[in-house]
Amino acid sequence: MAKSTSKPIFSLKNVTKDFAGYKALNDVSLEVYPGQVLCLLGDNGAGKSTLIKVLSGFHKPTEGTVQWEGENVEFKSPKDANDRGVATVHQFGGTFPLMSVGRSFFVGLEPTKGWGPFKRFDKKYANQVAVREMQALGITRVTDGERLIGSLSGGERQASAIARAVHFGAKVLILDEPTAALGVKEATHVLRIIMQAKHKGIAVILVTHNVSHALTVGDHFAVLIRGEKADDFKKGERTREQITDLMAGGEAMAELENELNTLTGTINQIH
């Protein structure tokens, strides 16, 4: 079991999520520490999405409890979780492709100037802050807050969403497959940003398929298989092969490789 000297900021205790008889999550316990990256690994349908939806307030657990800074909490809505400091970034980052960088950065938390009926959205400030915060994360190509989110690259979109979360003081940052749609270079950049967030003391939950990415930034790891936590370990406690095997649902990768070998063998014979 992963243990740390500091106290977990966010934890799940024996959480089960039942969708009309189907247990998407079964008795899962998890601890998230500030300044650490928890990698959530698992195949499609393993329950990763359900787990992050419980963490971010979209779903309420059927059984079990969610603890925030040591106390039991029940998130009433995503907004509720958000207010506590849980920020979720989806695969494509900023979700409003037709909004400008500055506007989307502040959606729901718009800065205003003036008073009374003349209170107005402070576009200049919004654009400045959004660009500055993205630059701080190493995105130097974005210099104009008027650019549309949809015109940014995948990595830049991720960065804009992470920058927003960091700016508004997120304590827990949930990243759902942030590198899945990215090329190698962009993915590396996003991983670097994750490390930056971690060093700021943010607890990062990284959902990924990619074992290399997970091993690069992860401090501890949890593997889900069919809604159950199959393993939970710290950095260095498992080899890459063991993790890959686990993610393939416990089925030994070697077996699969053998099978593939026989297949390619057949092809070779045809030649």
Partner: peptide, 13 residues
């Protein structure tokens, strides 16, 4: 934001 993505808009409060 609502026209862009209503679910995300709701999530931001």
């Amino acid at each position: 934001a609502i026209g862009g993505d209503v679910v995300s808009a709701k999530a931001t409060g």
